[in-house]
Amino acid sequence: MTTLPPPTLQPTTNSAARAAAAHKVYGSGDSEVRALDGIDVAFEKGKFTAIMGPSGSGKSTLMHCIAGLDSLTSGSVFIGDTNLSSLNDKELTELRREKVGFVFQAFNLIPTLNAYENITLPLTLGKKKGDSAWIDRVIDTISLRDRLDHRPSELSGGQQQRVAIARALASQPDIIFADEPTGNLDSKTGSEVLTFMRRAVTDLGQTIVMVTHDAVAASYADRIVFLADGRVAGEMFSPTAQKVLDYLKRLGE
C-alpha cells in the first residue's frame, strides 16, 4: 500500500474487504440510477457482518462489486490488500476462486454434480487438492455426511443452502459473501443455516458478509451495516432482533 488509505468507519488494518468512495451508476441522463452513492465500508476479519436496508438501497450491488463480480463506476474496493480495479479477468477469476466464497439466494449448485463434488468444485477448478482435514470438518459441521452423493435435486432447500455454504468454505477463503441465503427458506430451516454460518465464524474463524431483510437473521451477526439510497446510513454492534427492529422503525420515520 503506497497510497494513503481513505477514511473509513473502522480501522483498515484488520479488514478482510473494504470499499472506498464506491460509486455505481446505472444508465445515464433521465434514467440514471445511483445504486451506490459514495460508500466507505470495511469488513473485519473473523467477524460475521450483516448488511440491511430497504429494497433498492444497493445491498446486492455493493456485494457484487466488492466480490469482484461487477465493477464500480468510480472508487475502489479491496479484498485484503488487493485493489480489484487493478486486476484483469484472469486475475479476478483466480481471486474469486481462492479468496472469495459465495452463497446466493437460489441456484447455488450445479445440478449435474453431487453434493460432495459441488462442495469441492472451487478446489477442482483451481486444480487443488485442498486441506482434506478442513473439508472433513466443514462437512461435519453441515451434518450432511450421509447425503454427499446426492444430487441437488434430491436435497431440500435448506440442505442445498448448507451445501452451498460448505462450498464457499471449502477453499478457506478470506471472505464469504451471502446474498439473502435464507430468503427462500422457512424459519426453522433458515435458523439451521444461520446457526451453521455463525459456527463457521466462531468455530472455524471465517469471515462472512450477509445481506438480509430479516431482523432475526441479522441478529446472528456481530455487526450490522445499514444502507439507504446507496449510502451507509448507520451501523450496530452485537445486535438482537428487537434492537434491529427498533432501529429499522426509527430509520423508516
Partner: peptide, 10 residues
Amino acid sequence: ALLRAIGASR
C-alpha cells in the same frame, strides 16, 4: 455463470 462466479476461468 455460477461456475464463473465461484472461480472457473473463461
